[in-house]
């Protein structure tokens, strides 16, 4: 009697392997790979590799992992599914290739998902980012009832219409890996496995203490008065720069060389600082619903101001 042969079950990819595979997959399809942006952001969309690069006519393809901060979502490390800081793998394809959905499906296969054994649906979900004046139409991609990717055809950013548009794919790496590894808690996700000893380091080993500490800060310790001071100060500096940028661009006497020196990226970073401070203030319960709308408007003004100057500078580059 022949013994039943069972193939040794291959262990699912680790957290970092999922990232490697996605990076490889998209690099092989012409994307440049960026490193995570080094200013606090709430989502990969806010990193300049997305926010600025999607503006203007120049084609661009980029992928990067982006640690994303959502102060209000912190749960002191006690909720198995919610995190203060999660990691997005963010992808921008500008313009989108006609087979962008098929490529996306292949990227899932690249991380070890056998699509013929799962239920996959593209369900309408139209992303909107009011603080950065951005919106698009698209889907949440559902696998076996769980959202694994946000897929958006970006239509507008910084209040400007995009032409060409781009496709934005945002993979939630923690969720995706928890799904692949079939664990109930994100903290049980295997981050890495030592190839020699097989010893594993989990997501909890790496991140649990900081999740706790961030929650304590955001919900209990953050000094509201100082946060407002920081906010107002960053905002004022940003407005000053935006005014200078606008004047410089409008100045017909100024040489293109002079105009290109305008520190747009730093202006944008000031806007990002404001956005993060707003999120902390919000988590701290310091912003009433009424104030909220006004605050979103203030940040949006900065983002729109930056986007306009960037578009003007792109024209400058194009014409020189």
């Amino acid at each position: 009697m022949a013994a039943t042969q069972t193939a040794p079950t291959k262990s699912p990819l680790t957290f970092q392997e999922v990232l490697f595979r996605l990076q490889n997959f998209w690099a092989e399809r012409g994307c440049i790979l960026q490193q995570p942006y080094d200013v606090e952001v709430g989502a990969g969309t806010m990193a300049p590799e997305t926010f600025l690069r999607v503006l203007g006519p120049k084609p661009y393809r980029v992928g990067y992992a982006q640690p994303s901060r959502r102060p209000a979502d912190g749960r002191y490390g006690e909720n198995p599914n919610r995190l203060f800081r999660h990691t997005q793998f963010q992808l921008i394809l500008k313009p989108p290739p006609v087979n962008v959905q098929e490529l996306y499906l292949k990227s899932l296969e690249a991380i070890g998902i056998d699509l013929s054994k799962h239920d996959l649906k593209f369900e309408e979900d139209n992303w909107e980012g009011p603080t950065v004046g951005a919106w698009g139409v698209g889907w949440q991609v559902m696998m076996d009832g769980m959202e694994i990717t946000q897929f958006t055809y970006f239509q507008q950013c910084g209040g400007l219409d995009l032409d060409p548009i781009c496709a934005e794919l945002t993979y939630g790496l923690e969720r995706l890996t928890a799904f692949l590894q079939d664990v109930d808690s994100v903290y049980d996700v295997v981050w890495s496995r030592d190839p020699e000893t097989g010893a594993v380091v989990t997501y909890g080993d790496v991140r649990l203490p900081e999740e706790l500490q961030y929650s304590v800060y955001n919900f209990e310790e953050a000094d509201v008065a100082r946060l407002w001071e920081h906010f107002n100060s960053y905002e004022a500096e940003a407005h000053g720069l935006i005014a200078r940028g606008n004047a410089l661009l409008a100045d017909e006497g100024a040489a293109p060389k002079e105009k290109k020196r305008f520190p747009l990226i730093s202006t944008y970073e000031l806007a990002l600082k404001c956005s993060n401070l707003f999120n902390v203030l919000d988590a701290r319960g310091a912003i009433s619903v009424t104030e909220r709308v006004g605050m979103i408007g203030r940040i949006r003004n900065l983002a729109v101001g930056v986007a306009k100057i960037y578009a003007g500078m792109q024209l400058l580059v194009a014409s020189s």
């Binding site: 198995p80 599914n81 013929s116 054994k117 799962h118 239920d119 996959l120 649906k121 696998m143 076996d144 009832g145 769980m146 799904f179 079939d182 109930d184």
Partner: peptide
């Protein structure tokens, strides 16, 4: 749950497991 696919028994078990997990959370 209404699926958009036809799979073998093992596949259904996987899909059921995944959906149950999401709902439980």
């Amino acid at each position: 749950a209404v699926l958009n696919i036809q799979v073998d028994e093992e596949g259904y078990a996987t899909i059921r497991h995944g959906n149950q997990k999401v709902l439980r959370a």
